[in-house]
């Protein structure tokens, strides 16, 4: 091989290695077929484009122009009657035959459908996923939940779940005083808890203030007198009477499931529902992760 081509291949090599290094830094799995084909394609582009053009550049150095000139001449420009470069002609014929074969034979007989391929792939994948993680331990669920949270929830709740200074629910706490007051004043009938709707204005004035402060404070110490009104449904300890009404003390799986499937309208604003977006395992994982946000674990 001559100098020019070697230089071109070195350049191609540098580009390919640089791409490889950057991609690897992002933990990309190059054994995935799509990634692998793309990477091979990139290599082909760099090697062939640089290499072949270097070959012709080299000919400028070493070869000389020859051939029979045609009779035509335009503004001093002549034209040789040279034959076609062999490699070019054969590649041309080859690709044309391949294309015609593909058009008339290869494609029609394959009847490829991209949606069909998608459906099969996803079905197989989901089955495998559910089976593999059906009995995942808490640590796995938490890590899984975190990864989903960062992709799907962080734009509203923030990377740390703090609710972006009041733009969405601060998930590091169960509820703020203002939120509880909002529910007391307006009632709540968003989710389908067995207790049904919670009526508005069950308690008022100072009582409401006290209850709200108690709930928002994580129900520590003595309950205010008015709490008994609430305890009827939410339980003395506020954990929801075994799923009859929402748990006010801590996030639990039922609540997260409800929020994800029905969304939530509250005093902060609205959260859209994510119905049909997650598998049961993913929902459980999100719940696990959110529970750790508020419990400080």
């Amino acid at each position: 091989m001559n100098g020019m081509i070697v230089k071109a291949l070195v350049m191609a090599g540098v580009l390919i290695v640089a791409t490889f290094v950057v991609v690897k830094q992002m933990n990309i799995d190059l054994s995935d077929p799509v990634n692998m084909i793309t990477f091979l394609g990139a290599i082909a582009i760099a090697v062939l484009a640089f290499g072949v053009s270097a070959k012709y550049m080299q000919q400028m150095k070493t070869d000389t122009a020859t051939g029979e000139l045609a009779e035509d001449n335009w503004d001093g420009i002549g034209e040789y009657k040279n034959e076609l470069p062999a490699g070019w002609s054969w590649s041309y014929v080859g690709t044309l035959i391949w294309a015609i074969w593909y058009f008339l034979w290869g494609y029609p007989l394959n009847e490829y459908s991209q949606i069909g391929e998608y459906n099969e792939e996803v079905k197989a994948y989901n089955a495998k996923f559910e089976k593999k993680h059906k009995n995942a331990d808490q640590k796995t669920l938490k890590a899984m939940g975190e990864s989903i949270f960062l992709v799907q929830c962080a734009p509203c709740h923030g990377d740390t779940g703090d609710g972006l200074s009041g733009k969405a629910h601060d998930l590091t706490k169960r509820m703020s005083k203002a939120q509880v007051l909002g529910v007391i004043k307006n009632g709540s009938h968003y989710f389908k808890y067995p207790m049904g709707a919670m009526p508005p204005n069950l308690v008022q004035g100072k009582d409401a203030e006290e209850v709200a402060a108690y709930v928002a404070g994580g129900m520590k110490g003595d309950a205010p007198k008015a709490w008994t009104t609430c305890a009827g449904c939410h339980g003395q300890d506020g954990t929801g009477n075994g799923g009859q009404a929402p748990n006010l003390k801590a996030f639990d799986d039922t609540l997260i499931h409800n929020v994800l499937t029905m969304g939530k309208k509250g005093s902060i604003g609205q959260m859209p529902s994510f119905v049909n977006r997650f598998t049961p395992v993913q929902e459980k994982a999100l719940a696990e992760f959110i529970k750790t946000l508020s419990s400080g674990k």
């Binding site: 503004d75 420009i77 002549g78 034209e79 040789y80 009657k81 040279n82 034959e83």
Partner: peptide
């Protein structure tokens, strides 16, 4: 071709 004064390499190649 004009700037270099060289004749075009191949009519056939141009054509195809």
């Amino acid at each position: 071709p004009k700037e270099s004064g060289q004749a075009v390499y191949s009519y056939k190649l141009s054509l195809l």
